[in-house]
């Protein structure tokens, strides 16, 4: 059994494929590619596919991680090309390689997005006020119910620029097996803190990282 890891993008119409449907979609893609998929032993034999992080419905990404197993050792470029030949529209395998680190090594993820507004200058003001607060408290739904979290300490703003009709931001948020923050928490916080109406657009995951800003691979 050969363990491999694919980095893939999910854009355009493909961003409406839910996480639940993605597993089935990948299985069919692999079957179309004719690659020798490894199946588990036993009565309910099934292939092994595992996504490092779930991606919210409607988000795009350039850096989704899929772990899978093959039965034969096939050059990784060939695996990539065979999959890309049968991928759904809007999805593309960027690379295939061996699995270097365990998914538990993931610590955070980077997102870019636009906050569309008629008056980006005023919105920018509110954003600056918000991110300069001591704390950014927001209610987060968890399996155990709703709890209040402070996203300020873990939130890292990479860039924040005024564009013609929006404020465009890039930020990193904790991700992985421990804490997972979604940019929607920040949107919530901004909605609570600002009187400006804005719409979110072009939300995209742009990177998945381990400690020391090392790109997860």
């Amino acid at each position: 059994m050969i363990r491999l890891r694919a980095v893939f993008s999910k854009k355009d119409r493909a961003k409406y494929i839910s996480h639940l449907d993605l597993n089935r979609c990948m299985l069919r893609t692999f079957r179309r590619s004719g690659l020798p998929i490894w199946y588990t032993e036993g009565f309910h034999s099934h292939p092994y596919f595992s996504f490092a992080l779930a991606l919210s419905l409607g988000y795009e990404s350039d850096c989704e991680i899929l772990d899978f197993n093959l039965n034969e050792d096939i050059p990784t470029n060939e695996v990539r090309d065979r999959l890309n030949a049968v991928m759904p529209y809007g999805m593309k395998i960027i690379s295939v390689a061996e699995q270097k680190r365990k998914v538990t090594a993931i610590t955070n993820a980077e997102y870019s997005f636009s906050l569309v507004s008629d008056n980006p200058d005023l919105l920018m003001n509110d954003i600056e006020n918000l991110i300069n607060q001591e704390q950014i408290l927001i209610e987060k739904k968890t399996k155990k119910g709703v709890k209040t979290v402070d996203i300020k300490p873990d939130m890292k703003i990479i860039s924040c620029k005024i564009a013609e009709k929006s404020v465009d931001m890039v930020m990193r948020l904790p991700a992985g097996t421990q804490t997972n923050y979604n940019p929607s928490l920040f949107f919530e916080a901004l909605k609570n803190a600002s009187d400006m109406s804005f719409e979110t657009a072009k939300i995209r995951r742009t990177g998945i990282f381990c400690e020391n800003n090392e790109i997860f691979s």
Partner: peptide, 18 residues
């Protein structure tokens, strides 16, 4: 409006084979 509704992938096409 797609994210406001149930199963949005039903309304946007782009399926393999289309």
């Amino acid at each position: 409006h797609l994210l406001e509704i149930q199963k949005p992938s039903r309304y946007i096409g782009g399926e393999v084979g289309s």
